[in-house]
Nucleic acid binder design. Structure first.
Length: 337
DNA sequence: ATCATTTACCGCCATG
DNA sequence: TTCATGGCGGTAAATG
């Protein structure tokens, strides 16, 4: 059970990324039925650190708090002197800093202990470099902000860096892309720990989209109208989520929007960030999770309602993407009213 | 778990 | 020339 959350604070911490962690895990919404966490902000020695824009943050703990944590989160730390914005004319590659003396031996060992005992260890943006310094990315799939992806791969050759996803969950080690993708990762975690209902409610509270899957591209190219009759697939997507129980094929969808299947598939990927079938499966699984939590429908019935031909197909995709069987998921998250 | 069949995906390339 | 299009075929994945 996720209860104790510790955030690592180093100098030059990026406030937005830190803020995401504070918002999700450090805000007490217990009065509204949300989970409440023991939340600690941990600097190396317990003394204040300077945030990237130059202001000072007073931590609540030192590194020793990491040893009690179920979740250790590392926000981003950016290069440059605090309070010195990077001039637009500076086109040199961005260098995240996380190496000595910031990433101390004590921090590295604390992260390793956390990972070893099965605690979640997550990073936002360039926080991935700290995880890398601790050796936690070796042999693992991971990601970071697209600007740092090359640098991360170069610095940690054993890490399998995927530069084009929002976040990656590899066992208990999770990494996310730039800034806002940290929200998606946190919601993913909340969803895994507490279920869809709470994750969706939290997303609503934070006024962000309830679910962006980790595999979604960091870039979703905006459809720039080149002709006067510019089309967007948005209406199609809206219609699709209301007809998930029906059978949809690339051909039928292409016909619906008057495109060739090839062009449709290409446009879909560019706009939605996933292939048509992948996207559909993702939406169907979201619906399945909801039904598993909210109803007592048999798995077979849920499969039918969500557009999976049969229960076997639902189980197949559910296990693969959610990491649990539908039945186990229901047992964990079905509200006992 | 395994298999045969269908479907989806994507690189390639010709077309307008 | 550049660009979106869309047909083709090999391969991967989904389906039942």
């Amino acid at each position: 059970m996720l209860k104790n959350v510790a955030v690592v604070l180093l100098d030059n911490v990026a406030p937005f990324e830190l803020g995401v962690l504070c918002e999700v895990f450090g805000t007490d919404r217990g009065a509204d039925g949300f989970p409440v966490y023991d939340f600690s902000l941990c600097s190396l020695d317990g003394r204040p650190v300077r945030a990237r824009p130059g202001f000072t943050i007073t931590p609540t703990h030192d590194l020793s708090a990491l040893d009690d944590a179920d979740l250790v989160a590392v926000p981003a730390f950016e290069a440059g002197a605090p309070g010195q914005p990077r001039p637009a004319s500076d086109t040199r590659p961005v260098e995240p800093i996380t190496s000595d003396p910031q990433t101390s031996r004590e921090l590295i060992e604390a992260l390793q202990r956390a990972e070893a005992r099965g605690a979640y260890v997550i990073s936002v943006c360039s926080g991935a470099f700290v995880l890398g310094d601790a050796g936690l990315l070796d042999g693992r799939r991971c990601t970071t902000h697209w600007r740092y992806a090359d640098a991360l791969a170069a610095r940690f050759p054993l890490a399998k860096v995927d530069p084009n996803v929002l976040y990656v969950a590899d066992d208990n080690v999770m990494t996310s892309a730039g800034t806002a993708a940290g929200i998606d990762l946190c919601l993913h975690l909340v969803r895994a720990e507490h279920g869809s209902a709470i994750a969706n409610a939290l997303a609503r509270r934070m006024v962000v989209p309830p679910h962006r899957s980790g595999g979604q591209a960091q870039f979703v190219e905006a459809p720039v109208p080149r002709t006067a009759t510019a089309e967007t697939l948005e209406p199609l997507l809206e219609w699709l989520v209301t007809t998930l129980d029906e059978q949809h094929t690339v051909d039928s969808l292409a016909a619906r929007v008057h495109m060739s299947p090839r062009t449709f598939a290409r446009r879909f990927r560019a706009e939605a960030g996933a292939t048509p079938h992948d996207w559909l499966t993702g939406q169907r699984l979201l619906m399945a999770r909801q039904l598993l939590e909210d109803t007592d429908l048999a798995i077979e019935g849920i499969a039918t309602r969500c557009g999976f031909g049969n229960a076997a197909t639902l189980r197949h995709h559910f296990s693969k993407r959610v990491g649990a069987t539908p039945q186990a998921y229901r047992t964990t998250f079905r509200c006992d009213q």
